[in-house]
Amino acid sequence: MNYRTIEIFLDLVQTRNITKTAQRLYLAQSTVSKRLAALEEELGYSLIQRTKGRREILLTRQGEQFISVAERWKNLFEETESLKNASLSTIMLGISESSYYGFIAPFLRRFMEAHSDIRIVASIYNSDQIYQMMDNHMLDYGITAYESERVGVSRQCISRQKLCLIRYSAEPEEGQVISPAALDPAKEIRFTGGNFRSMNHWRKTWFGGRNESRLELNTVQGIVPFLDGTDYWAVCTPSMAVSIARNVSLQIYQMEGCADTWELFFLKREGEEAQKTTAATQFEAELFAYVEAFSENE
């Protein structure tokens, strides 16, 4: 993805017409069509419905959902550009939501309290988007839920947590263990929006990879209304479970026979040590000290 292509897509959302968008952006219609097709190929799905004889563009369901992603991408790119000549004490950080609330947010709060001269621009995206932004030099650091080899981007595992299971309970108890054989797969709330390999492996081991779940969510906090007072259940990490338990009474189970772990990876650009600012040096040092202490507590 690049800025011009995102700009074309968002203008098409407004005009719903390729000719009008081409005129407004001073481009040839063929250029608009090619840029849109290239974006769809990169994303792996169609954004518009192509119907002969229709002047007005209709978006696909994925196209409608992509609008908010494109708007955030455009805003972050513009903010990144505006910071090029600004203070060197700004850190651009992309975080997967699955790691934010229970793991990274407490560190950021502590870090900001200790460094009044450092500015953090933290954005929550899914892991695929974070990798793309690292590729485009839009982020200083990324924290993702899976590992992907990218040219110029180093990856380091900073956390491994065993998967656990959560379900509503009015009177939760500590140290509870559950066998997945006792679970109804149709009652699972599945997290989507990322490449969650450990969850997929666990599900395949116990349920043969069947997708019987009737509810999928791409947000951790969005799970709360569906857990509260119901018999739905979800697989997550202990840190996610503790975060969710602040809003709903949960029983947190260890899972019998489960060796799968949820891994988090720290991303940064390679070969940029010479340009590293004092703020970045402090951020990395304190993040890894926090990670080490977190692991010991786990």
Rank of each mutant, 00 (worst) to 15 (best):
H137S: 08
W73L: 06
I48C: 11
A145C: 12
E113D: 11
Q129H: 04
I95P: 07
E97R: 08
S116Y: 04
Y101K: 04
A145I: 03
K74M: 11
Q132C: 04
E79F: 02
L88N: 15
F66R: 06
S96G: 01
Y141W: 01
R110V: 11
Y125S: 08
I124T: 08
E71R: 14
T60P: 14
L83A: 12
N126D: 15
T60I: 11
Y100K: 03
I120T: 05
R61C: 08
D135E: 10
I57V: 12
S123M: 06
A86L: 03
S82I: 04
R119D: 06
R55M: 00
A86P: 07
L76Q: 01
I104V: 15
I48K: 11
V69Q: 15
L108S: 05
G53T: 11
G102I: 00
S116A: 13
Y131H: 07
S68Y: 15
S123T: 05
F111N: 08
M138F: 11
I57C: 07
W73V: 09
R110C: 01
S148A: 09
R109T: 15
S99V: 06
I48Q: 09
Y131D: 05
I91G: 03
S116N: 02
G94N: 00
I120Y: 11
M112T: 13
Q129G: 10
Q62P: 12
S82Y: 01
R72I: 12
S98G: 04
A70Q: 02
E97L: 06
R54M: 05
Q49F: 10
F107V: 04
I124Y: 04
S116Q: 13
Y141N: 03
R150L: 10
S148I: 03
E79A: 12
L59T: 05
V151D: 14
G142C: 02
G63I: 14
M112G: 09
S99Y: 08
S68N: 14
S123G: 10
L88M: 08
W73F: 09
Q49R: 14
T80V: 00
P106T: 13
E147A: 06
M112N: 12
I57D: 07
Y101V: 09
R109N: 13
Q129A: 02
T144F: 05
S98N: 00
E113K: 15
L108H: 04
Y141I: 07
S89F: 12
R61A: 15
L76M: 07
I120Q: 13
I130W: 10
I91F: 06
E64S: 08
F77P: 03
Q62N: 12
R61H: 11
M138T: 12
T144C: 00
E113V: 06
S87R: 10
G53D: 01
E71N: 14
L93T: 00
E149N: 10
E81C: 10
E78W: 05
S127R: 05
M138S: 07
S127E: 02
S96C: 06
E81N: 01
K52S: 14
S148P: 04
I91E: 05
T80L: 10
Y125A: 06
Q65N: 13
